[in-house]
Design a protein around this nucleic acid. Structure first.
Lengths: 136, 136, 136, 136
DNA sequence: GTGGTCTAGACCACG
DNA sequence: GTGGTCTAGACCACC
């Protein structure tokens, strides 16, 4: 599990971590019972503060996605795949809603929006997907 | 020029004011040379502090959208319409790019995205535009 | 007597008017006993507020450059040419001092300054002097 | 990084702070990536209000000279040295241009100007730089 | 701990 | 009347 953080993104770092864990679970990249990196490892790998990782893990525990194994660390909970698959589209939907709302408030038409979407899809698809940051 | 402020929507008040002025300029509601309400008028109309309006106006000046006529007030600058028209779409485009990038990196297809977009367009369009609420 | 005002100049408008009257007197463009335009005329010609012109004239009176002729207006005082010729270079010197001081504070050397001065002299000399604004 | 503020010199305090930061960057006293003092530290050291420092820092951010590391503080941006070196000379050049223009329009010769410049250079150079006063 | 936002109220220069 | 500066103090999110 490797996290790519963009600190100048508007999205809080702890939330970027949360989202990436959820996507990895929904994806099958992280399996039930598998351990996530320790707070310290994740912090040093992603070059962020340990408290930030701790906060992300804490919130993931509260959501039932991680559970702690005493003395061992945190692992993906049994229900995690279901929760994450269920919320996978919602994570995107919520961000999208906010953008589109601003667009409509500025009297940008649905057609103009679709044009922008297609334009960005084209741009992003032709980028090498392997080395990409997960946020920007 | 009347501003509708939603103090509980995450976007800082001074930025809501900025956006609405930009929008009004891009729109033609505010014409080149026209004066914006005095900081005191705008503050009392929008029920916010004078300094908050002053900050919005100051940033609009720094962006070349307003220019100050000493002792008289602030007016729409000559190239404000061009700047505002440009930035209007760019602000949306940039936010959209960020969302779509996250989506693609998590194996959400362009078709799924278009479905989400259409869904949100439908939802947002049927909201009552009665109150001319520019923020939320 | 025609005044060229640059409202976006940092120098207060009333002071721009003062300086231009002084220079005109030092120049011989305004002669002893000659009347300056009425506050209203000057204000409409220079497109500034009447209060602003009034303030400039008031300060020129206090400095003994203008004197009022009851019911007639304001005229160049007897001592004005001497005063103005004397202060002609000082007006420039004072502004220059302020600029050079900032330069020195930023560790720009006297030689660099002389280069800048020569550069600006060359630039300004080749401009048609007739149509120029008097301030900028 | 220590700031010397003169509250009674016409230049707004926040701008004195801005200039001194820019100067220090152009100078190499502040290196890329280095952190500036926290707003609270700078405020207490310079005996000004926190908001005043915050305003200076905010404007430096907008100019691309500082960038914020969330929850950690503000650091010198990558291209700050270039920006600061550029703006240092440009600020002087612009002020100088304005003064010289007024001089030429009032029939002061380039030679007279050079004499004034030399005179001011001599005056300013012999001032005691003991207190390292960056403003006056 | 950090910066960011907002409020309230004072004072100033300018027109 | 206008905007601009500064202070003081509160509250917030983030690290």
């Amino acid at each position: 599990m490797i996290c790519h953080i963009d600190p100048s993104n508007g999205i809080p770092i702890y939330e970027q971590i949360e989202r990436q864990v959820k996507f990895a679970v929904a994806n099958g990249s992280l399996l039930v019972g598998e351990r996530v990196p320790s707070v310290r490892d994740m912090a040093s790998q992603a070059a962020v503060n340990v408290n930030t990782v701790a906060r992300a893990y804490r919130e993931l525990q509260q959501q039932g996605i991680l559970h702690s194994i005493r003395g061992t660390g945190l692992a993906i909970a049994t229900d995690a795949p279901e929760i994450c698959r269920h919320s996978r589209l919602n994570l995107i939907r919520e961000r999208l809603r906010s953008v589109l709302q601003e667009a409509f408030q500025n009297q940008i038409s649905a057609d103009e929006i679709r044009t922008l979407v297609d334009e960005q899809c084209a741009l992003l698809n032709q980028q090498p997907p392997a080395s990409n940051q997960l946020n920007s």
